[in-house]
């Protein structure tokens, strides 16, 4: 059953067990330092702020023009995510979070940034990464977090009509061995 239910007004109601909900609340801290550009893995920065041009002079001009917009946009997504979590409701059954319709896009973008950050930290380079986890891997906890965020992002996409299974089945008509990431 999808823990994300779309309401009549277009908002999404997310119901999570306590443990997953608390993990989610700790997520903004992970990316806050990155947006301040202090002491971070440069590969993560390169991935979250990718180049637009191969040519370095064009790229420099582009950065001057639009670099701050990108940084601002990522910060706004994180702030929207944090603000939504401030209003979460805790009950014995778990945690409920109401995501306003206008905040859904920023939630998806922020979850994706978190996943990209973890993907770089875990050195993921293959599409079938989810099938190749070694249980003795020292970064198993980070893999578990990546799985949680992937699952959550997919649940939100499912709730707004982007069912991963539908796209995966279309792909498998061409390549039966294929997985789910693009």
């Amino acid at each position: 059953m999808n823990p994300v239910v779309r309401q009549e007004d277009g908002s999404l109601l997310l119901s999570l067990p306590h443990a997953e909900g608390l993990v989610l609340c700790s997520m903004p801290q992970r990316i806050e330092a990155l947006l301040s550009s202090e002491g971070f893995n440069h590969r993560v920065v390169e991935r979250l702020f990718p180049i637009a041009y191969e040519d370095s002079s064009r790229e420099a001009e582009y950065r001057k023009l639009l670099g701050d917009d990108l940084r601002r946009s990522k910060r706004e997504s994180m702030e929207t995510f944090k603000r939504t979590l401030e209003d979460l409701e805790i009950s014995q059954e778990g945690i409920q979070i109401l995501i306003a319709e206008e905040a859904v896009g920023q939630w998806l973008a922020f979850l994706n940034d978190l996943r990209l950050y973890l993907g770089i930290e875990l050195d993921i380079t293959e599409n079938d990464w989810s099938a190749s986890i070694d249980p003795d891997e020292p970064l198993e906890e980070e893999f578990a977090l990546l799985h949680l965020l992937t699952w959550l992002q997919q649940c939100i996409l499912d709730a707004i009509g982007y069912d991963q299974d539908r796209f995966a089945s279309e792909l498998q008509e061409d390549d039966p061995d294929d997985g789910g990431e693009s």
Binding site: N112, R115, L116, I124, E181
Partner: peptide
């Protein structure tokens, strides 16, 4: 460009949102 992390459904969602593509074209 291809990326091992981005979900297929998310890519379709973004392409529709940014370019206004039909679902078929975005897919």
């Amino acid at each position: 460009w291809d990326d091992p992390i981005n979900l297929m459904s998310y890519v379709v969602y973004v392409l529709q949102k940014v370019f206004g593509f039909s679902e078929q074209l975005a897919t």
